[in-house]
Amino acid sequence: MTPEQVLVAPGRRHVYWHSALTVVVLVGAACLAHRHWPVLERGAVRLAVADQGWLLVGGTAAAATWICAALAQQGAVVRRLPQGRLVAAQFAACAANHLLPAGLGAGAVNLRFLMRCGLPAGRAASALAVKGAAAVVVRAALIVVLALACPGVLRFPRLSAGILAAGAVVVVCLAVVPAWSRCRRALAAVVADFRAVHANPSRAAALWGGSLVFAVLHALVLIAVGQAVALPLSPARVALLYLAASSAAALLPTPGGLGSLDAALALALTASGAPGAAAASAVLGYRLLTVWLPLVPGLVVLTVLIRSKAL
């Protein structure tokens, strides 16, 4: 199976599992919303009278994330990409990501765009893997730095020796199964592309700089909305809670983290001392700026790119 087939047309069983899990998460989120409806209603009212200046800051930060995503994607590719179409593709990929689970929408859009720019399917898939790996490393580093700056906010579970040993056994078993040979070849291609990118300092700076600012800007959106609704938490704490909650929500393959991210963010904010109405306002405002307002324009851009053969 080619990398394009893996990203664009996964097996039916894989899609069914994703769809079933998405439905379960969305039903659970709907039940939680129904149970806490008065809090959500107060949060919506609080957001309606929020500080417009801070909401404008949050909206500007949300719009800038697409430019940073384009910068990181360019950094993951040695070949120069058309800048205007690259930014438009990131905007369209963001919209597609809210319609399909586990990042499949964004992956498919970006893969198709890179192939339209002349990259073979394997190289395009490796470029997406390089970008994804950089994003994971940057998020982990930010969480560690903010956790040290805000001690006591996160409580990491202690892993026993038995759990670590079981994990080591699983890794060893995966290393000997026949399918792992294909994974090793794919990993070798990603490592080769990673080295090629870092042989060009400007590309490496674009990759890591774009990935870093992308994560920071998303945290800034939540911080700005929190300031607009008078969320009684420090910006550093809000950023840490956002990064931790969004990383945890990524484990559940709902479209754009719908339901899973909302619940994780609200739980993290309230557990850190924020009132329920303020936490609900912050989450609703973050979703409004990053999902609901850009969704329809993003789908329009996606349609235009498809019709113009850019995808």
Rank of each mutant, 00 (worst) to 15 (best):
Ala48Arg: 09
Gly209Ala: 02
Gln227His: 08
Pro101Ser: 00
Val15Met: 14
Ala228Gly: 04
Ala149Tyr: 06
Leu258Glu: 04
Leu241His: 06
Leu86Glu: 12
Leu174Ala: 04
Ser308Cys: 09
Pro255Arg: 04
Gly75Val: 02
Ala95Cys: 09
Ala147Ser: 15
Thr270Arg: 09
Pro10Asp: 00
Gly132Trp: 09
Gly162Ser: 10
Trp180Thr: 15
Phe156Glu: 06
Val15Asn: 07
Ala199Asp: 13
His14Ile: 13
Ile163Pro: 06
Leu311Lys: 00
Val24Ile: 13
Ala228Phe: 03
Pro297Ala: 00
Leu55Trp: 11
Pro10Ser: 05
Arg203Met: 02
Leu26Tyr: 04
Thr290Tyr: 13
Leu47Glu: 00
His36Ile: 04
Asp51Val: 03
Ser308Tyr: 09
Ala250Ile: 13
Arg155His: 14
Ala30Gly: 13
Thr303Asn: 10
Pro253Phe: 01
Gly209Lys: 00
Ala95His: 09
Ala196Gly: 01
Arg158Thr: 14
Arg182Met: 05
Ile143Arg: 05
Val191Met: 03
Arg123Pro: 08
Leu86Tyr: 12
Val8Trp: 01
Ala188Val: 10
Leu104Phe: 10
Ala205Leu: 15
Trp17Arg: 09
His14Met: 07
Leu40Gln: 09
Ala263Trp: 09
Ala250His: 10
Leu26Gly: 05
Leu55Lys: 11
Gly11Trp: 04
Trp54Gln: 12
Gln90Glu: 08
Leu99Glu: 13
Ala61Met: 14
Ala121Phe: 03
Val6Ala: 15
Arg35Met: 11
Ser19Thr: 12
Ala278Ser: 11
Val301Trp: 02
Trp66His: 15
Gln5Ala: 15
Trp292Val: 07
Leu293Cys: 06
Ala280Thr: 01
Pro253Ile: 06
Val24Ser: 09
Val197Tyr: 08
Val221Gly: 04
Arg237Ile: 13
Gly259Asn: 12
Ile163Gly: 03
Arg46Ser: 12
Thr2Trp: 06
Ala124Lys: 03
Thr60Asp: 06
Tyr16Glu: 12
Met1Ser: 12
Thr270Gly: 00
Val216Gly: 02
Ile306Thr: 08
Arg307Val: 12
Leu217Lys: 03
Ala93Thr: 05
Leu7Tyr: 10
Gly298His: 03
Pro178Gln: 02
Leu217Tyr: 05
Val177Thr: 08
Cys94Tyr: 12
Val216Met: 11
Ala30Asp: 00
Gly105Met: 02
Glu41Gly: 11
Trp66Ile: 01
Leu56Thr: 07
Leu302Gly: 10
Leu243Trp: 07
Gly107Phe: 07
His98Glu: 01
Phe113Ser: 03
Trp180Asp: 06
Gln74Lys: 02
Ala106Phe: 07
His18Gln: 14
